[in-house]
Computed example of a mutant assay.
Amino acid sequence: MGDFFVRTEQMTVGYDGKPLIKNIEIQLKKGEILTLIGPNGAGKSTILKSMTRQLKLVGGTVYLNNEMMNHMSGKEVARRLAVVMTERIRPELMSCEDIVATGRYPYTGTLGILGEEDWEKVHRAMEMVHALEFKDRDFTAISDGQRQRILLARAICQEPEIIVLDEPTSFLDIRHKLELLAILKKMVLENGTAVLMSLHELDLAQKISDKVICVHGDKIEKYGIPEEIFTSEYIHHLYGITTGSYNASFGCLEMESPKGTPKIFVIGGNGTGIPVYRKLQRAGIPFVTGVIHKNDMDHEVAKVLATEVIAEEPFEEISEKNLETARKWLDSCEQVICCVDVFGKMNAGNRELSEIARKEGKLITITEYMKQKNS
Rank of each mutant, 00 (worst) to 15 (best):
T242S: 13
T243H: 08
T243W: 08
S245M: 09
S245Y: 12
S245R: 07
S245L: 01
Y246D: 04
N247T: 03
N247D: 13
A248C: 01
S249V: 15
S249F: 15
S249E: 15
F250R: 09
G251V: 03
C252T: 15
C252K: 07
C252P: 00
C252Q: 12
L253W: 15
L253E: 12
L253M: 14
E254K: 01
E254Q: 02
E254L: 14
M255V: 08
E256P: 13
E256Q: 09
S257R: 15
S257W: 04
P258H: 10
K259A: 12
K259Q: 14
I264R: 07
I264K: 05
F265T: 04
V266I: 06
V266A: 04
V266Q: 11
I267L: 05
G268R: 11
G269T: 02
G269K: 08
T272S: 15
G273L: 14
I274H: 02
I274W: 04
I274N: 11
P275K: 06
V276P: 03
Y277F: 15
Y277L: 09
Y277C: 06
L280Y: 13
Q281Y: 06
A283I: 00
G284A: 06
G284F: 13
I285V: 12
I285K: 04
P286V: 01
F287E: 09
T289K: 02
G290F: 02
G290W: 05
V291M: 08
V291F: 03
I292M: 09
H293A: 11
H293Y: 09
H293E: 13
H293N: 06
K294Y: 10
K294R: 13
M297W: 13
D298P: 02
D298F: 08
H299C: 07
A302K: 10
A302W: 11
A302N: 08
K303S: 03
K303D: 09
L305C: 08
L305E: 12
A306K: 03
A306H: 04
A306D: 01
T307D: 14
E308N: 03
E308V: 02
I310F: 03
I310G: 03
E312S: 06
E312R: 04
F315T: 03
E317C: 07
I318Q: 12
I318S: 04
S319W: 11
S319H: 00
S319V: 03
E320D: 13
K321D: 14
K321M: 13
N322I: 00
T325V: 09
T325F: 01
A326L: 07
R327L: 08
W329N: 13
L330Q: 11
D331S: 06
D331H: 05
D331L: 06
S332V: 01
S332Y: 02
S332R: 15
S332F: 02
C333T: 08
C333I: 10
C333F: 06
E334H: 05
Q335I: 13
Q335N: 07
V336S: 00
I337S: 08
I337W: 05
C339A: 06
V340H: 02
V340A: 03
V342P: 00
V342A: 05
V342F: 11
F343I: 03
F343S: 04
G344L: 01
K345V: 12
M346W: 15
M346C: 10
N347F: 08
N347P: 10
A348W: 14
A348M: 10
A348R: 14
